[in-house]
Design a protein around this nucleic acid. Structure first.
Lengths: 144, 144
DNA sequence: TTGCTTGTCGACAAGCGTTGTTGTTAGTGT
DNA sequence: ACACTAACAACAACGCTTGTCGACAAGCAA
């Protein structure tokens, strides 16, 4: 399960786009590298602040949006109140969302069987399909 | 495509649950009856206010939540910024969301093919599947 | 290096959709 | 008609996200 380009590659990509690579952005790159927990922006902010106390939440949002514009992450709204950053843009996948603890897990499945019948597709162009499985992970099922 | 119970039935159901049926609630019942536009709470509020100028937004939210608790509507978060009320709780269906005009249309399809493979289902209990097809309706495709 | 240009930073405040609070009004079963 | 109590409208506050802006620093050229 591939995750994300390394900090060096992202640095190059940003520079190529005329975007500057600041210590703040590198810190965020490093946090996302190898992170499959679908963190919220706030949690990225908290972790970044641990090593860089002056970084602002706005900066994290901005960097995440830049990464999204470059196609290096996906920003998901799973209806949990805050958006989540998904560094896995390579593999098509759905999401398993635990409605208790909020953890999100990837479900590496193609869209086989998820076709829009022709008569409904006729006057609609599908660009993207988002599938969210809501339920409970075993950890949360146990204690209820 | 069935939609929603009529105002009279909802009145009975509410009373049975110990909930009171006020003119405000009846007005909202009437608005939802035969509405397949997946309105936002705000738009329900605007329409209700046309005939009942003193009704408050909070009341609309409360009534919608009560209806949801009774299983008479579904409250959807499609990532459009505000939640939408779906009066169609009878038929399993997906949603076609136009990312330009925001209109939502039902897609009456079963979940055939939308299975979670066993090895991923092993430690997760799926309660609900939400499928959102994002794209453009023809009306919005034309003018771009 | 040096200096210039321009994008980015952090601080602050505002925007949005939604929910909590509170005193008052009004639906409900008797 | 009565008493009980849920629901009401008005207001303020909340959480998440974004706008504004002066100060700053990265990048580039010489």
């Amino acid at each position: 399960m591939s995750v994300m380009k390394d900090t060096g590659s992202l640095t190059t990509i940003f520079r190529e786009q005329g975007l500057r690579v600041t210590p703040q952005r590198q810190a965020i790159f490093r946090l996302l590298e190898g992170d499959d927990s679908h963190p919220t922006v706030e949690s990225l902010f908290d972790r970044a602040r641990a090593h860089m106390p002056t970084i602002s939440l706005k900066t994290v949002y901005q960097t995440v949006h830049d990464l999204e514009a470059l196609g290096e992450v996906r920003v998901l709204d799973l209806g949990t109140g805050s958006v989540r950053v998904d560094p896995n843009v390579e593999d098509d996948h759905h999401h398993l969302l635990c409605t208790v603890c909020g953890r999100v897990r990837d479900l590496p499945v193609g869209f086989a069987g998820l076709h829009v019948p022709i008569r409904y597709r006729r006057d609609f162009t599908v660009d993207d399909v988002q599938v969210i499985f809501r339920g409970r992970c075993d950890h949360c099922s146990d204690r209820t």
